[in-house]
Every structure is written in structure tokens, then in C-alpha cells.
Amino acid sequence: MRRRGILDAVPLFIPAIPFAFVLAVAILDSGVNEMTGLSSSLIVYAGAAQLTLVTLLGAGAAWAAVTAAFVVNTRHALYSLALAPAFQRQPAWFRWVGSALLIDQMFVLAEPHRDDDPDDFRRYYLSAALFMLVAWNLCTAVGLLVGPSVPTDWGLGFAVPVMFTGMLVPGLVGAAPPKVVAAVVAGAATVLAADLPNRSGLLVGAAAGVLAGLAAARLAPARSPQEVDA
């Protein structure tokens, strides 16, 4: 199971390589201390949140940076919920370690193995997760070393919004309409609130999007039984 964990992890890690590079460039652009930026790969270990954090820290908006990174991270709670039954059969230490390593890719890998034998699940999960952790930190470090040799007039900073767009759009394909409403309203509200101090327009926009999504789901005529309020 150990070998299989690593073999399964490799293809999922490949898209994270340019992501780590974009993160490294964002760290260099932001003026955040390089070692502090690098430490986020170990301490936070969540690409989208790290990218949000360093970009907004660079803009001098520390509280908006922290809050926005929290908000970006809430999706992990859904993974945690989905995998909780599998973790109930695991020793306590692994519930802590496994939680800390639960990145998007680990959810994709672990979800089909939820009902495996608990020992197999743990070996599979740990080997894949440790591979991901080491690879992510190495790639961030390499990006920080190589990044300064990239000329600034390439405008690599624009890769950050492109990356977020690339995470957003595929998730909307075939999604329920309220999700699309949430994204569109959030974007529009953020633009309208762009002049608020410390980039807090971002939080206003995100909140508006979530509320709009909830409202749209209420108005939608077809509701599946699970969606009826408990």
C-alpha cells in the first residue's frame, strides 16, 4: 500500500509544480521575508491559502490576508466531514497527523479508499501524504531560488489571478446554478467594493456571494431531499 500511495500521488502532484512556482514568485514580489514565505509551505501547507496570504500581506493588509486565507480554507471542512468515518477507525495520532496533511489532492486520493482495511488505509494515506508534503516544500524552495532570475517585465504576477481563475472555472462546469450565482455575485460585489480599505472588499464580496448562492438555492424550484432544511 505504501508504494501504491506514492505512485498514485505523483500524477496528482504534477499540476502543483507550476503552482509552487507561482507561489514562489508571489512571495518574492510581495516583499515578505523569503524564509517566512517558505515556512508557509510547511506551516499552512495549502497552496491557495498561501497564495492569498502572501499576496495580501505584500499589499500591507495583514488582517484581510489572514481572514481571506481562512475563508479560502473552509473547503477543507467538507473533506474532513467526508473522511471522518474512515478516521474514526484510526488511532488518535493518525487522526491528528492525517488532518494536518489533508490537502485537496489527499482528499481525491483517500476518498475512494474510505472503506479499506484501517491499516491499509493508514499506510496508503501516509505514504501519499508525506510524498506530497516533501514535494510541495521542495518545489517552493526551488521556485524561490530560481524566481529572481525571471525578469520582472514578464509580468509573472498576473499568474496569480490566472491560477485562481483556473481553480474556479472547472468547478463551475456542470455545477448547480446557485454555485455559479455565488461566484458571479462575489466577483461583481468585490469590484463594487474595491475602494474599501485593506482589501476588505474581498471579504464583502465573498460574503455577498455565499448569501446570493443560498438565496438562489431557495428560489430554485427543484430541490433534492437532502437539501430540504433539517
Binding site: 489571478p161 474556479l168 455559479v180 474595491a194 474581498l202 465573498a206 455577498a208
Partner: peptide, 24 residues
């Protein structure tokens, strides 16, 4: 749970908009 589903797309869209239109 339903609200959690919308947090992801809403935040990503807000991030893109904010990166492009905010001061700086």
C-alpha cells in the same frame, strides 16, 4: 453544509476580482 459549498467559488471569484481591481 450548503453555505460551505458556496464559500469556495465565491472566495475564488472575489480573489480574482480583488487582485485586479483593488488599490495596488
Amino acid at each position: 453544509l450548503q453555505a460551505l459549498e458556496y464559500v469556495g467559488p465565491a472566495t475564488l471569484a472575489a480573489l480574482v476580482a480583488s487582485l485586479l481591481t483593488s488599490e495596488g
